[in-house]
Design a protein around this nucleic acid. Structure first.
Length: 565
RNA sequence: UGGGGUGUCGCCAAGCUGGUAAGGCAACGGGUUUUGGUCCCGUCACUCGUGGGUUCGAAUCCUACCACCCCAGCCA
């Protein structure tokens, strides 16, 4: 059954078509070898998940391999903490790079040797211009650049200068190594791009071994080449860089993978800009990179998303080249689709209203055996205590009930799930006129929630025995951003104006006893309320903390909204 | 005014060796139901950015426009 689901219609996309065609023509000898190449300068987010699922997924589907490679060529922005979080995120998502964990910094020696080759070929030169001069002389989009005065230095002089750059003789910014291509090229990327810059900085892996560091364009293609990558999949903004990718490999005459670009993911109500995510963390708008409101893999994990749901989402959104903005509701659907199958059901009352069953014996307690899932017997069962005083959801009682109301109202009979039918006899109010308690009567003949005389009730309520209830902290996370496109700030406003100030509400709920014994990071469904997960950081036995992942569909709320109730 | 890309239902997205518009999400309507959940059934693009053209026939080919995205880091 689940096998059918997994092997059924896995959608196609243009990259699969390219690979299938390559396999048909034997372009790579039937090999498929991809790589996921993050820069360790932040935590991975749902956008990276798309790339991870693509690269690892393609490799798996075509019987190939996928490497994990850290693009660590800029010591100023990279840290070991990020390397660790990235490894954890990829593994948590369910992918395995086996023994193929690589670092661009592993190739620094080799990259350096190739740079000297380029110099000897007369294809690269050391430029003494300042960064400002280089920018100025690069021209503009519609105006060609002008050659650097240092462009025609001899290979010997370039070699000497480059070696001295490597030796640390010059300060940061004094010189760079540039490719000698064409300062008038219509593609600005090809106007003598920088290959190496001087950085007297400590690298998280190579320490103080280097004073010059290679640029992305130079490093990435050669790393791919070194690893024998067949299909180098990256996002759309690198389309212009493909020309340099190809130039570098062809000029050096080395193995040449094919770069393929796809559109990056955009999600409504969600910021996926690394710069903005860093801002959210540093300015304290969230508690950290794994705050449940963050779109990071670790944030989604803590929020209660499962690896399977994220993989399913990445499969469903497809892969294309058109800019897109995917609705958050699709992500939620993928989560519900997964959790509905395997999340055990429990009862918790978020906003309690006291109910006294007047005709139920004072000291009696019954232990009901509840199935943990209405359809999946393999999820087992648990016992739930029932007694004279209970809590039900305050929202489940209406004094003036609308015509289609199925829940509790004065004089109305409903079912307490798996327990008894009860009828509301009296509404107790305080001096202010607020309802503080309901006095009800139960029908002993309806034990288990079935009536023997065939009479039916329309509503079923979740409930908790007051004497046995445990207090649970429930965190109701919402969207961090109030606008569908958080970057589309209101007139005269900024990105920050879209941060929703009330995206987290914490309530103390009355929960059935079994909930106090759950292990951290256990997904559950609270009957009629939604999917929750025990917090992996703050949850302790006896003092449960739940994060809300997603609400259930609520057709009553919708009817009310539409005025059909 | 340069170069590189992209435009198919509210949101994604198949289709693009021409033959008369898949699927998913969302939405809406109905049935089942001890979660107003799930599940099941049904509705939802005479039209493919726009205008011409070729053709018996075009989302698919040609052409001219229009719109949007990316590129002028010693970031990736």
């Amino acid at each position: 059954m689940s096998d059918d689901k997994a092997t059924a219609a896995t959608p196609t996309n243009f990259i699969k078509d390219i690979i299938a065609e390559d396999n048909r023509t034997g372009k790579w000898g039937g090999r498929v070898h991809t790589r996921f190449p993050p820069e360790p300068n932040g935590y991975l987010h749902i956008g990276h998940a798309k790339s991870i699922c693509l690269n690892f997924g393609l490799a798996k589907e075509f019987g190939g391999k996928c490497n994990l490679r850290f693009d660590d060529t800029n010591p100023a922005k990279e840290e070991q903490e990020y390397v660790d979080s990235i490894r954890e995120s990829v593994r948590w998502l369910g992918f395995d790079w086996e023994d193929r964990e690589f670092y661009a910094s592993d190739y620094f020696d080799r990259l350096y040797a190739w740079a000297e080759d380029l110099i000897r070929m007369g294809k690269a030169y050391v430029d003494d211009q300042t960064a400002d001069e280089i920018r100025e002389n690069r021209g503009a989009l519609t105006r060609p650049g002008v050659n650097s005065p240092w462009r025609d230095r001899s290979p010997e002089e370039n070699l000497d200068l480059f070696r001295r750059m490597k030796a640390g003789e010059f300060p940061d910014g004094a010189r760079v190594l540039r490719a000698k291509i064409d300062m008038a090229h219509p593609n600005v990327v090809l106007r003598d791009p920088t290959l190496y810059r001087i950085r007297h900085a400590r690298h998280h892996r190579t320490g103080d071994a280097w004073r010059i560091y290679p640029m992305y364009d130079y490093t990435h293609c050669l790393s791919d080449s070194t690893e024998g990558i067949t299909h180098s999949i990256c996002t759309l903004e690198f389309e212009n860089n493909r020309a340099l990718y190809d130039w570098t490999l062809d000029t050096l005459g080395v193995y040449h993978p094919q770069q393929i670009e796809f559109a990056r993911l955009n999600l409504t109500y969600t910021v996926l800009s690394k710069r903005r995510l860093i801002q959210l963390v540093e300015e304290g708008h969230v508690s950290g990179w794994d705050d449940p409101r963050m779109p990071t893999i670790m944030g989604l994990r803590r929020r209660g998303f499962t690896p399977a749901s994220i993989r399913s989402f990445c499969e469903k959104i497809g892969v294309g080249k058109a800019d897109n903005l995917v609705e958050y509701s699709l992500l939620e659907y993928c989560l519900r689709e997964d959790l509905n199958e395997r999340a055990p059901r429990y009862m918790a009352v978020l906003n309690p209203l006291r109910v006294v069953i007047e005709n139920y014996p004072e000291d009696q307690v019954e232990e009901f055996a509840f199935p943990n899932h209405p359809e999946k017997e393999e999820l087992g069962s648990r016992t739930v205590p029932f007694s004279r005083v209970l809590y039900v959801e305050r929202d489940d009682f209406r004094e003036d009930a609308p015509s289609k109301w199925r829940r509790l109202a004065p004089g109305k009979e409903v079912r307490l799930r798996y327990a008894y039918y009860v009828t509301c006899r009296e509404v107790v109010k305080d001096a202010a006129g607020d309802v503080v308690e309901l006095r009800c009567a139960y029908d002993p003949a309806t034990k288990g929630g079935w009536s023997s005389d065939g009479r039916k009730v329309k509503g079923t309520l979740h409930w908790v025995s007051a004497a046995h209830a445990v207090d649970a902290e429930v965190r109701l996370y919402g969207q961090l951003f109030s606008a569908p496109d958080p970057m589309a700030a209101p007139e005269g406003g900024s990105f920050k104006d879209n941060i929703s100030p009330d995206s987290l509400e914490t309530v103390t709920a009355k929960a059935e006893p079994a909930l106090a014994a759950l292990a951290p990071e256990t997904p559950v469904q609270f009957e009629r309320l939604g999917y929750f997960i025990t917090d992996r950081r703050d949850h302790r036995p006896g003092a449960p903390v739940f994060n809300r992942t997603a609400a259930l569909r609520d057709t009553w709320a919708k009817m009310e909204r539409l005025g059909k109730a």
